[in-house]
Design a protein around this nucleic acid. Structure first.
Lengths: 224, 224
DNA sequence: GGATTTTTGGAGTGATGACACCAAAAATAA
DNA sequence: TTATTTTTGGTGTCATCACTCCAAAAATCC
């Protein structure tokens, strides 16, 4: 957990792959692919549940390559997390910020997409962030905090979208945007648990549809 | 993980405390209290995150007492889980089966109680079941399955309550009871994540209130 | 008090975890 | 080719984990 010596050396070695100094043997394995494999393992088993040996086996590299390229298990976990976020953020923000749909539709589509993404066969079920770090010993507080921050980030992105809806006029002005975002965030976490427990895609979709029934009446709906 | 010999001996020793044979030294520590302490630790840190040494320290017993009284870490976890369920099942089923309130009110009160129970100071935040065993290595599949079963159980209890509501006439007859239960189950899991991340009691309450807005129109509401 | 039965402290076990290090191999620039 | 730089396999290390065992202590019943 606590790096001792050679910290400088590791960092240098790690950066080397990006900014090669023109000499020396280049990497034999594909760093991005190895990272993807590590991500899937962490996603499936969590941080604690994934051992060093599991990782290097799945990544197809040796212990020293691991050490040279990724620094430590914890650093790799951070990288894998960011890799996941970059990937899931694509569909998440594409839908959330789609200018061609109103706020309510955006959230409805978000849950449709969530149901699909949480039950795909080409990667573990559910979400890598939603349930991570919720149980952890005192020594792993930094990981717990990191994951809580990621969760808070997506919740605040939802809140921002709802606030935009209020400005655009497609969300009632008296709506508590943060609270509505908290609610939909909670539903999304719940979907992650359901997915983990093997719920079918259609079940997740329907839960999302039910969750949308809590959407506040728009000003126009009230008037008409 | 795999007990080898002396299995018989352990079981006998374990039962001894309940059905004493009239001779020999009785237990020095309070088994129920020790179990409570173990429960809180598991609840806070999860199965993997709680070490043998953490356990015996918190329980105030020696390794051999642990071994004699509880068999193994896994058996203790099962016991702690059942202890939790017995305890949380009290308020859960008291509200769910309260004959003096209709179905919708029962669920609303369930979320009120959930918000309160998930944010109490005298035990860890959230729920011991909701998020447990969602990440685990292959060797812990039995624990994963056990927790998934517990989650499915509470979901089916909710479904049964809604079905009763349909029979009683306070829930619209065309409601998909299992799906509605799945939705509220998901919300409850989401509340557990929010609680873990430090959400205030009032925030959880409000999320529950929002979730109740998805409740299906009763027949009478539609008619009038 | 003595015999019996169980608990307890304390030391030990094999397995696994997460690194850490080094000498040899490999690939590039010159 | 040679010098240089980096990767890699293999081995070692230290801690922790979940148990395991045994002899001594303690509390009961007769």
């Amino acid at each position: 957990m606590t790096p001792k010596i050679n910290q400088r050396k590791k960092i240098e070695a790690k950066n080397t792959q990006d900014e090669r100094r023109g000499r020396g043997r280049p990497a034999v394995f594909d760093r991005a692919t190895a990272l993807q494999e590590a991500m899937k393992l962490f996603w499936e088993r969590g941080y604690e549940g994934t051992s060093f040996n599991d990782l290097i086996a799945a990544m197809g590299i040796s212990a020293s390559s691991f050490y040279n390229s990724f620094g430590s298990k914890e650093e790799l976990y951070c990288e894998a997390t960011h890799s996941f976020l970059e990937w899931s953020g694509q569909w998440f923000f594409a839908i959330l910020n789609d200018p061609s749909i109103d706020t309510r539709t955006a959230f409805a589509r978000l849950f449709e997409a969530t149901a699909e993404e949480f039950t795909r066969g080409d990667h573990p079920l559910g979400c890598m962030i939603s349930l991570a770090g919720t149980h952890c010993p005192p020594g792993m507080k930094n990981i717990r905090d990191m994951m809580a921050e990621h969760r808070a980030f997506s919740e605040s992105a939802m809140a921002a979208r709802i606030r935009k809806g209020v400005m655009d006029g497609d969300v009632a002005p008296d709506v508590d945007c943060e609270m509505l975002a908290a609610y939909y965030s909670a539903v999304a976490r719940g979907l992650a648990v359901q997915a983990r427990d093997g719920a079918a895609r259609e079940k997740l979709s329907e839960i999302g549809r039910l969750a949308m029934r809590a959407w506040p009446m728009a000003k126009s709906d009230v008037r008409e």
